[in-house]
Structure formats: C-alpha cells, structure tokens
C-alpha cells in the first residue's frame, strides 16, 4: 500500500501542494458516474438526468433527515421538562430550565463548572496541537529532505510503532504518568503530545517530498541555514497541509475519551467529554436527562463551529487522503 500511496500522493502533491486547498472533491464531482452522462452536450438528454437527479436528491434528503434526527431530538429534548422527555418529539411546554440545572450540576462537580470544562478542553487541545504539529513538521522535513545517519532505520521503527494498539501500552502509560506526577493535573494528556505525532509526520513527509529541492537549494545559496530555510521557505509551502492536520488533530483531541478517562484523575481537570460522561453517570433518574443532554449539546458547539468553518478543508482532506489505492 505504502508504495502506491507515496507515489500517487507525491504526484498529487507536486501539482497541488503550493496551491491553497487540496480539496479535489468539487472539481472532480462533475465527472462521470453510473447513470449521469456528461452534462454539457445534448440538450435532449437533460431529461432523464434531471429525473434521476430529483430521485437521488429525494433519497439523499430522506437519509439526511435520518442522520440529523438524533441531533434534532437532542436539541428539542433540552427544552423539555423531564416528564416529557421520552413521550413527545416537540416539547409541549418549552423551558430552558435544563440549562440552569446543568450549570449548577457542573458547578457542583468541579470548581468553575462547565466554563472550567471548556477551559480544560481548550488547554489540552489548542496549544497541544500547535506544538505537536510544529514538532512533527520538523521531523517530517528531516525525513523527507535531509540525509543523516540512521534515517531509514528510525523511520521504519516509527512506522512500526504506528501498528501498536493503544490498549497494549495505555496501562503502563497510566502508571508511568502517575509516577511522573502528571495524572493529578492535565499534564498527562499534554506533555506526551509535545513530542509529535507519527501520523502527522507521515502525512507531512509526503508534502515535503513534493517540494522541488531547487527551492531549498536556492534559499541555502542565499546563505540561509537549515532551520532558516525550513521555517521561512519550506514551512509556508506546506501551510495548507499543516492547517488541515491541525484541524483534524484538534477534533480528535477534543473528542478523545479513553485517554483522559485513564490519565486525568483530578476531576477539576476533567475535559468536556469526561465532564459530560460523569454527569450522565451521576444520576439514574429521568429528571437528570435534560440537563445531561444540555451539557452534551454545549460540548458539541466548538466542534460544530470548527466543522462549519473548515468543512471544505476537512472533507477535502479525507477525500485527498483516500486518493491512494
């Protein structure tokens, strides 16, 4: 797989990398498929295609409704009194009481309440992702463009560690972080990520490959050192890729559950997923449900904002990373 991937990615990268985005989705979308022919010529052919489009649109719309239904139920449920929660779809009596209750519950659970939860989640994602991406970019550049002793061996070992399931190392990690004194605060889910991410290195390496050597050579002939060349010439060229990785990494870290569950002992340092999970577990009765759902909904807001802002980039990157087989 890797070989095909690399060759193909490289080709794509060479043509695309310096450009703004790498979303081939839209440009490629008007291509062929099973039923629809080329749209431009032959006006008489428009008819069956329009009918097909209508049918497909209707089907996809119905499916979309199914996809969105749980979210819709969730939003509406937060405005219901707990007695209505399972019996109606639309609230009979609208109330925002669940949000007030949620606020109090969170305050009871941890100092600073849900605001603290947001801050914790923010603190354990945004700076972490920033450092992680930069560190990974340095390593990716070294692997792609520099020649140094033992490079291939180190790279193969790094690829090998990608295969190791998290479940194998997570318990010794928990012990190790405990011994290092990291589990009492948020540090256990911060510090280890400062050392870079292998997947990011692997991904960015392809982009650095795509940059012609002449560019960095020119910079170095002008007297710039390695680091200077990297930071001011090469890094800007892979900025789109960096941004995409940062967004994906942010979403992954923000949603991470098992890591914080194992490594964050102090509930004042709970991230939002942990906080919401704890709220959900704290009460068995139905009266708790609206406020738990309110907390869940609020915890989704940052992701929804990020997704709304970067949806083209996110979706493009998935389609892009799929152009491998």
């Amino acid at each position: 797989m890797e070989e095909i991937e690399m060759n193909e990615l490289q080709e794509t990268v060479e043509t695309v990398a310096p450009e703004e985005d790498m979303a081939p989705a839209e440009t490629a979308a008007p291509e062929e498929n099973g039923a629809a022919g080329a749209p431009a010529p032959a006006k008489k052919k428009m008819r069956p295609q329009t009918i097909g489009n209508i049918v497909v649109t209707v089907c996809l719309s119905l499916g979309s409704l199914l996809m969105l239904l749980p979210f819709l139920w969730m939003v509406l449920a937060t405005f219901k009194p707990s007695t209505e929660i399972y019996t109606t779809f639309f609230p009979r009596t609208w109330t925002a009481q669940s949000y007030a209750e949620m606020w109090e519950d969170c305050n009871r659970l941890m100092q600073g309440g849900i605001i603290r939860g947001f801050l914790n989640s923010f603190l354990t994602t945004v700076p972490v992702v920033f450092v992680q991406i930069i560190v990974s970019a340095f390593a990716a550049y070294a692997f792609a463009k520099l020649k140094f002793f033992g490079k291939n061996v180190v790279f193969l070992i790094m690829l090998g560690t990608m295969m190791i399931p998290f479940s194998v190392i997570m318990l010794p990690q928990a012990w190790l972080y405990g011994r290092m004194g990291l589990t009492n605060g948020p540090l256990a889910i911060i510090i280890p990520k400062f050392f870079g991410s292998i997947t990011t290195v692997f991904f960015l390496r392809q982009f650095f490959y795509g940059i012609p050597d002449s560019i960095s050579e020119a910079a170095r002939l002008d007297g710039a050192g390695y680091t200077r060349t990297f930071l001011s010439v090469l890094l800007p060229l892979v900025m789109p890729a960096l941004a995409t990785q940062a967004i994906l990494s942010f979403i992954g870290n923000w949603n991470d559950f098992l890591g914080p569950l194992l490594f964050v002992r102090d509930r004042n340092w709970f991230t939002l997923p942990l906080l919401v999970n704890r709220l959900n577990g704290s009460g068995g009765s139905t009266s708790f449900i609206p406020r738990v759902l309110a907390a869940s909904l609020i915890s989704l807001v940052p992701i929804i904002i990020v997704f709304a802002a970067f949806q083209k980039k996110i979706i493009g990157s998935i389609v892009f990373s799929a152009v491998k087989g």
Binding site: P70, M74, N255, L272, P273, V276, S299, L300
Partner: peptide
C-alpha cells in the same frame, strides 16, 4: 461529533 454526547443521545 464527540462520541460521549452522541452515545448519550
């Protein structure tokens, strides 16, 4: 979406 929120729903 956060799996916690979604699974609670």
């Amino acid at each position: 979406m956060s799996i916690v929120a979604v699974a609670i729903v």
